[in-house]
Nucleic acid binder design. Structure first.
Lengths: 90, 90
DNA sequence: TCCTGGCGATGTCGGCTTTCGTCATCGGCC
DNA sequence: GGCCGATGACGAAAGCCGACATCGCCAGGA
C-alpha cells in the first residue's frame, strides 16, 4: 500500500474533495509528521501508535564490503511503538 | 504532537474544509493504515518510511513481577523503517 | 496514462542494543 | 468522562548498522 492508495481511499470515503486534494492532504500529513519527528518531537496517534525519536550513540560496526572496522556515528532514529489495539496481532 | 495537532495543521494549510472534517480525515487515514497493517500488509510512504509486519516467534521471557520464567507467545508486530530522507538525523 | 527521476530493498558480519512478558497508577487524548 | 499510553522490574533472544551497486517500484508532471 502506498500514498496513492491512501489518497484514493480518502477520496472515496470522504466525499467533497477531489482526488488531487486527497493526495495533497495525505502528502501534507506525512510531511508534517516527518518535520516534527526530524525536530525531535514525539508523535502520538492514539489507537495507532507512537513515534519516538531516539538518540543513538556512536558505536562500532564494520564495512560489510571490506570487513574493516569503522565507526557508526551517533545519530537520531525514529522508532514506532504500535498501539496494543492493533487487531489480528496474534 | 497528537492527532488533533495534525488535524489543525491540515485545516490551516489546506483550506476549504472545516476543522472537523480535517480531524475526520486524519482519523480515517490512520484507521486505514491500521486496518491494512493488521491484515499483514506492508505500507510504504515514500519519503517518510515503511511499515512492515513481522511475525515474531515464541520466546522466553519472565514475569517482571515474580521473576518466573514464562513464554512470550509468537505474534505479529509492526516495525517502522524511517526513510533515509529524514532531515536532522544527525 | 505515460515517462522519468528518485526512493527503497537487498545482502554481507558481529558487538552492542533492544525486545517483551505483568500490572497498577496516573496523566492526557478524544 | 472514559479510554489510551507510559512507567518500571530481569534476561534470553532478536535486531541494529556501517558501504554500495543494482533493480523494482513510487510519484509527480505533462
Amino acid at each position: 500500500m502506498t500514498k496513492a492508495d491512501i489518497a484514493r481511499i480518502v477520496y472515496e470515503r470522504h466525499g467533497g474533495i477531489s482526488n488531487r486534494e486527497a493526495a495533497r492532504l495525505v502528502e501534507q500529513i506525512f510531511e508534517t509528521l516527518k518535520s516534527r519527528l526530524s525536530d525531535g518531537e514525539k508523535v502520538q496517534i492514539t489507537g495507532f501508535g507512537t513515534f519516538l525519536v531516539r538518540q543513538k550513540r556512536e558505536r562500532r560496526g564494520r564495512n560489510p564490503q571490506t570487513g574493516e572496522e569503522m565507526v557508526i556515528k551517533s545519530r537520531r532514529s525514529v522508532v514506532f511503538r504500535p498501539s496494543k489495539l492493533f487487531g489480528a496481532a496474534e
